[in-house]
Amino acid sequence: MESEIVKIDQLVKRYREKLAVDHFSMEVRQGEILGLLGPNGSGKTTTINCLLSLLKYDKGNITVFGKAMRPDAYDLKGQIGVVPQNVAVIHTLTVAENIDFFCGLYIRDKKKRKQCVEEAIEMTGLGEYRKYYPKKLSGGLLRRLNIACGIAHRPKLIIFDEPTVAVDPQSRNAILEGIREMNRQGATIIYTSHYMEEVEELCSRIIIMDRGRNVAEGTTAQLKASLKNRETIRMDLVTCTDEIIRDLKEINHVYEVKQEGEQLIIRCDGGTHNLLHIMGYFEEKNIPFGRVTTELPTLNDVFLEITGKELRD
């Protein structure tokens, strides 16, 4: 069994009357990339701040590397790297100095530190910008610097809090590839985001948060398998009658048919060749139709089915 790096048990955090984290529990296993997915305000960052012991919390237990996480647990803090949501660097220090400064908070040995700084610069592709001041860097490069400052000391556990917000696609891909590389090198990753595509692409396991609660968890496949909706078929149809809708509902695995404007949306709960069966019906009845698309479920569908609202809302 993979060993447990982080365990959060029944965490409760209130901001006065507002319940930000509601009996939230999770585990992070060694070597995995755990995605913490949820809309803005769902409690992801609050959970991370509690995990880092920056925030006091009302109830619950947090252990990291098997020990209770406390504000003065310096031995644990030394093994964690943090990449905060907003760029957290010093604007009057150069790229190399910023990385050296933050790395120096963890590593005292100058020789070792120098090596770590060089590795972080190389990994984030900041080599040619080492003498630049942050204000001279583009948004994407700033994000890379933000990451380099959090990972230079080679932490065993790295927490990325929405690292790709407001980042161009090219930098985003570079960041995601960098995270994969760190994971390949042995780091356990916690990755919070409200971008489901990113989480789906990157993470080996996902926890979906809503209103401070853990509403679902598992691999992408497990989460999708838990859905009733397995396939959504959209069909452009000029004329739709009640009879057509009734007939379609009688086809095996079709459980919902609804009309939105000139588009018919048909949802199936499993089975195979659903599209063929439906198109066969229209051909048999000689009913003309336009464009047809079929969609497999996404994490947004998972979120929608569990919470009744869109993840993107």
């Binding site: 920056l54 310096y74 803090k77 964690i80 760029v87 957290a88 010093i90």
Partner: peptide, 20 residues
């Protein structure tokens, strides 16, 4: 502000580090 987590992002990063 550079060393206090409740004042800046830099402070959060600083206070996440193992520094007295």
């Amino acid at each position: 502000s550079g060393i206090s987590a409740n004042m800046s992002e830099r402070g959060k990063r600083f206070e996440s580090a193992p520094v007295y």
